[in-house]
């Protein structure tokens, strides 16, 4: 089982977490967002082969939402951090 690095709790089993997909910055709807841009935000995923940034939630743990950089082929985590940090 994959070990996921929680920034609060350290390395824990993946079964404690909810995976919430690739990180996609949200365009602010008050600005002019075209239909295409909005549809891309909603439905398009980069499907990266390599390191990408993704959301995790520590469901059976501290309740933290955090970002992690993980290699999609090897599953190796590069780092994990709170939103707004890098």
């Amino acid at each position: 089982m994959l070990v996921v690095p929680c920034p609060n709790c350290g390395p824990r089993n993946a079964s404690e977490f909810r995976y919430a997909g690739e990180y996609r910055p949200r365009p602010h709807p008050s600005q002019d967002v075209t239909d295409d841009e909005w549809a891309t935000y909603l439905y398009t995923r980069s499907n990266t082969l390599g390191v990408h940034t993704e959301w995790w939630f520590h469901t059976s743990g501290c309740g933290l939402w955090f970002l992690a950089e993980r290699h999609t082929k090897t599953n190796a985590f590069v780092k994990s951090y709170l939103w707004g940090a890098t």
Binding site: R18, G63, L64, W65, W83
Partner: peptide
Amino acid sequence: FQWIQWWLQSG
């Protein structure tokens, strides 16, 4: 709860 937390914790 998770949904609200998500937005709370991301800005």
